[in-house]
Simulated scan of single mutants.
Amino acid sequence: MKLHSQIMRSWLLFLLFVLGACDAAGPGFKSSSKIERSIEGTKFALRRQGDVVEAIRLSPEFLPKFTEVARKAAIVAQLETGCAAKWVDGDPALLRIGMSCNGARPPKKPSRRKSLYCDIEELYGRGNSYAGHMICR
């Protein structure tokens, strides 16, 4: 029993260590201060560098859709900065938002490799097996 509790304690410490790094700033945002904001049940860590805001989703969500997370991140970025969100790039966990402040042009959206965004529309599970269907754009 003692070995079991030591293993559980080790896993808990490991989990706390990993989760503590979940909102670490991305490249170019390490010197920016972090602000946490929530909207519609989703919590974000926001960092601003000039006219770009980095939003890291802190709330656990099961299979979040990029479009929905991007919408929420754009709203909190606009509320926090007072600027207009002109584009959102990234994935459901880490987003970059290009802002237009005081009528200025937003920054150029970073070029990316072609990506597919996929949403799982149906998911069926039985035991340890899962099957479903996905729509990719």
Rank of each mutant, 00 (worst) to 15 (best):
Q6N: 12
Q6P: 03
I7Y: 04
R9C: 06
R9G: 04
S10W: 07
S10D: 13
W11G: 07
W11C: 03
L13I: 07
F14Q: 10
F14Y: 04
F14M: 05
L15Q: 11
L16C: 09
L16R: 08
F17A: 12
A21R: 12
A24C: 08
A25H: 05
G26V: 09
S31L: 14
S33W: 08
S33T: 12
K34L: 00
I35H: 14
I35W: 03
R37W: 08
I39F: 05
E40A: 09
K43N: 03
F44R: 12
R48S: 08
Q49L: 04
Q49E: 06
D51T: 08
I56C: 00
L58R: 05
L58E: 05
S59G: 01
S59C: 05
E61L: 09
F62E: 15
F62V: 14
L63E: 11
P64Y: 01
K65Q: 04
E68A: 09
E68N: 14
R71Y: 10
R71L: 03
K72T: 02
I75L: 08
I75R: 11
I75N: 07
V76W: 03
Q78D: 08
Q78A: 15
Q78M: 13
L79H: 00
E80A: 11
T81N: 08
W87K: 06
W87I: 13
V88Q: 06
V88N: 07
G90P: 11
D91N: 15
P92T: 01
P92H: 11
P92L: 10
A93L: 07
A93M: 10
L94S: 13
